[in-house]
Amino acid sequence: MSAWSTVHGIVARDLSRATRQTSRLLGGVARPFMWLLLVGTGYNTIARLESGLPYQAFVVPGIIVMAALFGGTLTAVSTVYDREFGMLRLMLASPAGLHAVLAGRAIAATLVGVFQGGIVLAFAPLVLHLGAERWLMGLAALAAVSAMSAMLGLLMAARIRSVENFAGIINVVLFPLLFLSGALYPTDGMPPGLRAVARANPVTYAVDLVRHALGQPAEVGSLTAAGVVLGVLVLAFVLAALLFDPEQRFFPRRPGAGAAVSSP
């Protein structure tokens, strides 16, 4: 009961914050549509894909993942803001402890990712033939991808000390993850080195999971894609819990990087 109340409190707060930061929320919704309409329409006329799909139809799963990745990750990374302004310490002082705090933050960030990706998914039937079953499978895949993105965001937030680093996260982490994932173009045409990086990129599997769900050809099997997405989700949770350990018992922080707070 106590741990659930804590999770509930954190989810309710994070969602209230998300809905009140309207420019950020609208930006998160507008970004994928800009890619879908501007880039997708332009590439539609020049791209010839082996699968025979029109480019705009091919890119829909990638754009859904983009929305989930940015929504989930950036919402989770706002933990850095809470650390800087003391709110994280208040949360960690809760009797429910660190795992409930991480779970609450992850659920809230997942819901934001599902919301932002879900809007793209809602409009997907305009460029894809989607039955109700495929659409629901897409929603389930989106939930898994959003959860993974949320946990990756928390993992990043574990060691970032300042909100000013948010822009760096987008440019240095999120865009490379997206560009090397097969979200916007197939990875099988890439040079071998980049293709190997794409294979090691969890977002590649997230994109393929959504492709499978929406009935599109993908580069890896559906079970592999689902296994990697869920595996990364669990691994990121475990690593985040270790990295958030205030006493830095497992991954020591360099001296002078700031005092820590404790957790169970």
Partner: peptide
């Protein structure tokens, strides 16, 4: 540790839930 984006009531409700009150 008061969240400026939330109302006073929401802030207190958040804290009550953190403390384990449901």
């Amino acid at each position: 540790t008061v969240d400026g984006l939330l109302t006073v009531e929401e802030n207190l409700l958040f804290a009550a839930r953190l403390a384990g009150l449901g």
